[in-house]
Amino acid sequence: MLGIDDPYVLMAYLGAVSMAVIGIIYGLVRRNAARDEVTPEDRLWALDEKKVDDDF
């Protein structure tokens, strides 16, 4: 199949493409599934990170 006789290499070739397809399906299915909120703790963390970055 596809000019590749070794089943394990063929599996890797198709497996790599399949992994990407799984990623696409996952992203589409979960697109809005999780909560999307920034907590005060998140903001505090980002301010601290920004401070270090700016100093740098």
């Binding site: 493409v17 996952y26 992203g27 697109r31 999307d36 920034v38």
Partner: peptide, 22 residues
Amino acid sequence: FMTVRSRRELDRAVPIGAVFIL
């Protein structure tokens, strides 16, 4: 991962990331 806003942002990045790495 710590600089990501939320779980949703991570979920949405999966398809692009997977195709990019492929």
